[in-house]
Design a protein around this nucleic acid. Structure first.
Lengths: 331, 331
DNA sequence: TTGTAAGCGTTATCAC
DNA sequence: GTGATAACGCTTACAA
């Protein structure tokens, strides 16, 4: 029976089981250093089941000084397919550990007020979190895992090798005989932070393979504009014959643009995307792309989080996440 | 200065401002029935700013009996593009009201333990939440907003007119001269609950327009399989000339399948999707589709939630969400 | 107008 | 082995 409010509390369970509330807590938390007799344990568990008791997350958080929430700070970019997928996968993964994922845009509220308020069990950052905030969180004992673009500056984070992605795109194009490479960049300035490392990888790979620097053009998500870019690449001298697209979305736009000016892939212009979008197999022609294996990343990040919550030692070995080439027909 | 833990509490602010902790609370909560002198208010706010005080969500939740979390219960289907978008938009919208959206799969944990544990400010349900859970939540005073498929059974929810979507698809095809309609259904049995009302709408519209019942075929996300379906429709007697796809994804697969067997849209087979996927303009040919205006839905749901948290009167007027036809070239 | 004090439901430190 | 008891940080009658 509930005390006076509608809620069933540990005290109610204690009363029902004929033990003290303390004992209930011991049983439920699997006795840190306590020995609970089997009979008591039974009585308590029975009472719990009978009353349908659920501990209050708020009370627990207040007492422990940290909640079971994982705060994910998102950069202020339009969340694309792949980031959305990562969030979803991560949420599922964390759910298995009784953790709830909360996402917040970095810009909407000062980051510091956010973590102070929520006392999250861990914080996941990607971009745009200030060094002070980082330090503050760490000082407060909150494990911070950063899924960063640039592995070098964040040695404790889990890197997505954006640079590697760019490299792999070029390598594929080079392997299929292309020597003059184009890069289809999205227009939104907001994406700059994501774009740059990928483009850097492309540039580096071109240099290493002895190719000319990539011809970078804006390819907005608009067929007409994409057509202009396609045309420009095609009629350059020497002509660009292979294009790395920032992502699959951009690749789709480019393919549509090419169609408008009578160009086809991979004959006139080979196109390779990034993300392995669900629709990539249905592009015309089916889109060759780089899969960043977000499911694997999600699993690793989740494990890293769970681990750093358990151990205080943030031994977060920054394992790089595999990235794979998916060959279809466009490149 | 923090008491002894690292945290800055309202008591610290009080000390700094030279007032009682109560006064701090009054000032910060904008004085329900209190009159605070301007000078005190200033002192408090200054101290808050100086110390960087942030109230503890846990303590507040414990005291108030409810947190500032909004729990969204998701059906156990692979979260597709459109549901993911809804979640994202909703999260952004709720963030503006200082609410945090938490998503959970209905199946992973018993629903009752979830809400009892989190004491959410509101719960958002879509499918697969039992009547008992509903009743339990309502009894506990938690506003429940259901974004349901079937408006009739959930008069307090906010309906997405899935049925209307199906209707509109057929109407477009009929308007462009098609009399024999096909329906491209996804294979996953998990999607049944979403599929059925749409298909029902298609059936109803066919009947009302005096057309034959739709020829329903499975169109999995596989070009080869989709090709078989396309062929079957095309060679039926009388031939199916217009197909409603379950969603844009299915439509993409179908278009790819058609290409394999030398069929083209809309000439041989007109295709109309649902979702207005970002990539729909880049389909070959550009995909005609139904936009379910999730941004509008998200806004309404958010307002409904915020409203029902404020008022206790769940006057949730179930306003239906507009759905619009986006004409491109495929149908 | 401001302060005192009683909880909200846990966990954890002691006694027994 | 088990049980009082004191926080955790906040809101809100009730006093002053």
């Amino acid at each position: 029976m509930a005390s006076r409010s509608g809620r069933v509390t540990a005290t109610d369970v204690a009363r029902e089981a004929g033990v003290s509330q303390t004992t209930v807590s011991y049983v439920l938390n699997d006795a840190p250093h306590q020995k609970i007799s089997e009979s008591t344990r039974r009585k308590v568990l029975d009472a719990v089941a009978k009353l349908g008791y659920q501990p209050s997350a708020a009370a627990r958080a207040l007492r422990l000084g940290r909640s079971e929430l994982v705060l994910m700070l998102l950069p202020d970019v339009p969340v694309g397919d792949s980031l959305a997928t990562l969030v979803e996968l991560l949420g599922d993964e964390l759910e298995r550990h009784r953790l709830s994922l909360i996402t917040r845009r970095t810009q909407h509220a000062p980051v510091s007020s956010l973590w102070r308020e929520l006392m999250p069990a861990a914080v996941l950052t990607s971009l745009g979190v200030s060094a002070e905030d980082m330090a503050g969180m760490r000082a407060a004992g909150i494990p911070v895992v950063s899924v960063e673009i640039d592995a070098a500056t964040h040695p404790l984070g889990l890197p997505i090798h954006q640079t590697l992605i760019g490299r792999m795109q070029v390598e594929r194009l080079a392997a299929t005989g292309h020597t003059r490479i184009g890069y289809a960049a999205p227009r939104q300035p907001r994406l700059r932070d994501f774009l740059e490392p990928r483009l850097a990888g492309v540039r580096a790979a071109c240099a290493e393979l002895g190719l000319e620097a990539p011809a970078v053009l804006d390819v907005p998500l608009d067929a007409a504009a994409a057509a202009a870019a396609a045309d420009q690449w095609h009629s350059a001298v020497p002509a660009v014959t292979g294009v790395c697209a920032y992502n699959d979305e951009t690749a789709f736009a480019l393919l549509a643009g090419m169609r408008r000016v009578g160009l086809s892939a991979p004959g006139d212009l080979a196109v390779i995307g990034v993300d392995n979008d669900k629709l990539a197999p249905f592009a015309v022609p089916p889109l060759t792309t780089i899969d960043n294996n977000l499911d694997i990343l999600a699993g690793r990040v989740a494990r890293l989080i769970v681990g750093s919550i358990a151990d205080d030692t943030v031994s977060a070995a920054p394992q790089s996440v595999p990235v794979s080439l998916v060959v279809r027909e466009s490149a």
